[in-house]
C-alpha cells in the first residue's frame, strides 16, 4: 500500500463545505493507496462540472477536458498507454446528459477504464437545473412545474448496454465506497460506479439524510453474475435503492480484442520509423 498522502494536491478546493465530493475524493485517494498505485501510474479524466474538478484535487496525471467529453480522451489515453490506470471522475450531467452518446458506446467497447459518476441528481456548476437523474416533480428555476422527463436509470441502461461492471455507492458509506472503487479499478473492462452524493446547495430533495433513508446494501449472498436479477435491482427505487455491485461479468476487453494492442508493449513505448510505410507502396504499383 502506498502512502495516501502522495495523492494530496496543493490546489485549494472550490467545492462547498459539506459537498459530497469531499468524501468521494477521500475515498478515491484511499482506494488508490490501498491498490498500491503511485500518482504517475494513474490518469484521472473529467469533463466539466463540480465533479469534473477532481483532477485538480488529486495528485495524479489529469485531463480536464470538455463538458460531456470525459470518456473519449480517457479512451484515447488508455489505447495509447494500456499500462496507465485510467479513471473517469465526472458528474451525472456530464456523463448521462451532454455525454450520453459516449456513455452508451463506451460500454459497448469494454475498454479497461473505471467510470465514477458523482451523481447528485442536479446541476451544481450551472446552479441548480435538472440533471438527467433528477427525479420527477422536482422543481427548479427552469423546471418550474417540476421535472416531467423520465429520469435516466443509469444502472439499468448500463446492464442492457452490456457493461461488464455495474455498481452503485454512496458517499455516506465510505468503507463500502472504497471497496467498490477498488473493485471497479481492478475489474478488467469498463466499470460503471454511480456514486450518490448530496449537493448541499442546489438539491434540497435528495439530501444526505434522504440517501441514508432510501438506500440499502445488497446482501452478502447476492449473486452479481445474475443479469436478470441485476436488471430488477437496477429498477428498484421507491422501496429502497440497492448499493453494491449489481452486476459483474468477465468478457474480453477492448485491449484483449484488438490485435495491435493485445501483444507487445503499450503503443506509447513502440519505436516507430518512417520506413514502416515502405511495405505499402506495392499496393499502388
Amino acid at each position: 500500500m502506498t502512502d495516501v498522502k502522495c495523492f494530496h494536491s496543493s490546489d485549494p478546493s472550490a467545492w462547498c463545505p459539506g459537498c459530497g465530493n469531499h468524501a468521494l475524493l477521500a475515498a478515491l485517494k484511499e482506494a488508490l493507496a490501498q491498490l498500491d498505485k503511485n500518482p504517475h501510474e494513474v490518469l484521472v479524466c473529467s469533463g466539466i462540472g463540480q465533479a469534473a474538478k477532481t483532477p485538480h484535487y488529486i495528485n495524479a496525471n489529469g485531463f480536464n477536458g470538455l463538458h460531456g467529453r470525459a470518456l473519449p480522451p480517457a479512451l484515447g489515453a488508455k489505447i495509447a498507454n494500456k499500462d496507465l490506470t485510467v479513471i473517469v471522475n465526472t458528474g451525472d450531467g456530464d456523463s448521462y446528459g451532454e455525454g450520453g452518446n459516449h456513455f452508451i458506446h463506451n460500454m459497448r467497447r469494454n475498454l479497461d477504464i473505471a467510470h465514477f459518476v458523482h451523481d447528485n441528481m442536479i446541476y451544481g456548476l450551472t446552479k441548480g437545473q435538472a440533471s438527467p437523474t433528477t427525479q420527477l416533480k422536482h422543481t427548479t428555476e427552469i423546471q418550474t412545474e417540476g421535472v416531467t422527463l423520465e429520469p435516466i436509470k443509469p444502472l439499468a441502461l448500463a446492464i442492457t448496454m452490456g457493461a461488464t461492471f455495474v455498481a452503485r455507492g454512496f458517499v455516506g458509506e465510505k468503507e463500502q465506497l472504497i471497496v467498490l472503487m477498488k473493485a471497479a479499478i481492478t475489474h478488467p473492462g469498463y466499470a460503471l460506479l454511480d456514486i450518490f452524493q448530496p449537493c448541499v446547495v442546489f438539491n434540497k430533495v435528495n439530501t444526505f439524510q434522504w440517501y441514508k433513508e432510501n438506500t440499502y446494501t445488497l446482501p452478502e449472498d447476492y449473486d452479481s453474475s445474475d443479469k436478470q436479477q441485476a436488471l430488477q435491482k437496477a429498477f428498484e427505487w421507491e422501496d429502497g435503492i440497492p448499493l453494491g455491485i449489481l452486476y459483474q461479468e468477465r468478457k474480453p476487453t477492448y485491449t484483449e480484442q484488438r490485435e495491435v494492442l493485445r501483444e507487445g508493449p503499450a503503443l506509447v513505448d513502440r519505436k516507430l520509423s518512417p520506413e514502416r510505410a515502405a511495405a505499402f507502396f506495392d499496393d499502388f504499383r
Partner: peptide, 13 residues
C-alpha cells in the same frame, strides 16, 4: 465529437 476527443486524449498520452 468522440473521434477528435479520442485523438486528443491519445496525443496527450
Amino acid at each position: 465529437i468522440a473521434a477528435i476527443n479520442m485523438a486528443i486524449g491519445a496525443n496527450y498520452a
